[in-house]
Design a protein around this nucleic acid. Structure first.
Lengths: 155, 155
DNA sequence: AAGAATTCGTTCGTAAGCGTATGATCGGCG
DNA sequence: CGCCGATCATACGCTTACGAACGAATTCTT
């Protein structure tokens, strides 16, 4: 009665909907694993700059734009308002970005990179290029292009 | 002095290491976005079963194996001991898996699906197939195979 | 057999991620 | 003008995720 839906069912019978469903072959699982691997490589390589992937992305965007509203930044880096709030808070605590009130719109907070933020961003990008290379290392040149193209279609 | 490294620098000068570096074109960013999109589709479709991706994966694996040790399960579904602990705890709280002490090794906890767990797993797999389909929907058949193959190389 | 090294599960801390709710502010519309 | 809906930032709660440390138990080594 409580016999599991064994994938390697000795009787080979069709016991249930789990037949021929292998979690480890699903996109979701593979996507999660690939993301995990990238995150591990990121942390390892970015250690000296002490930035998480999200922090790095946010910082780079602030540096690139010079001035951004917090929610606007969140939209650009695909991070919802609740999450970007904490990220910005941590970047501010480290003095990497500054924050001023917008005279035009008293609701919004305008972010801008500090000198330290500019400096760290410069160093971090060098590391980030290494991370990208390390992540794609198992693929050859053609596969890398293909993979990025496919990823873009799924974003 | 605090001029940002604008990607679209009017002068076209080489201001710093951020030139020609676009965060949104990096594997890490695209991987994160694709993963986000999948998670959103998952949550939407799996709503009636009320399982997170990780909970679903763990439950399916327990059902598939019948009996597993907690850390062993974690290894199979790529979830570290600290994380699988909470996941299993929540599955137990919902009466989807049971837990017994292993007489052979008093350190380990043996997990097994309950009747409710078996039942829910069966229903959830149906939804999961839809999620996989929805996630890969933007790709044609050939692209799907290619994408999965590439993902596997990066896991 | 005794000690060392490893493994198992747990706990704590930190971070991301998102749903939901809230107060403040802004924009539009009658 | 006044109201309503939308937007901005924030707060709380819950889940995943992982490093680090821990006690208990097991296994390996000498």
């Amino acid at each position: 009665m409580s016999q599991p839906f064994l994938a390697t069912d000795p009787a080979g019978a069709h016991r249930g909907p789990l037949d021929s469903y292998l979690v480890e072959d699903q996109v979701g699982f593979l996507l999660r694993r690939a993301h995990q691997r990238h995150a591990a490589l990121f942390q390892e390589t970015m250690a000296e700059a002490d930035l998480t992937p999200t922090q790095f992305t946010a910082l780079i965007k602030v540096v690139e734009l010079g001035r951004v509203t917090q929610n606007q930044l969140g939209r650009l880096v695909a991070t919802d308002p609740a999450t970007i709030q904490g990220v910005v808070q941590r970047l501010m605590a480290r003095g990497l970005v500054g924050r001023t009130a917008d005279p035009m719109d008293r609701r919004s907070a305008v972010l801008a990179p500090t000198e330290a933020g500019l400096e760290l961003a410069g160093r971090a990008v060098v590391l980030a290029r290494r991370i990208t290379a390390a992540t794609l290392e198992p693929l050859d040149a053609a596969e890398r292009l293909g993979f990025l193209a496919l990823l873009r279609k799924l974003s």
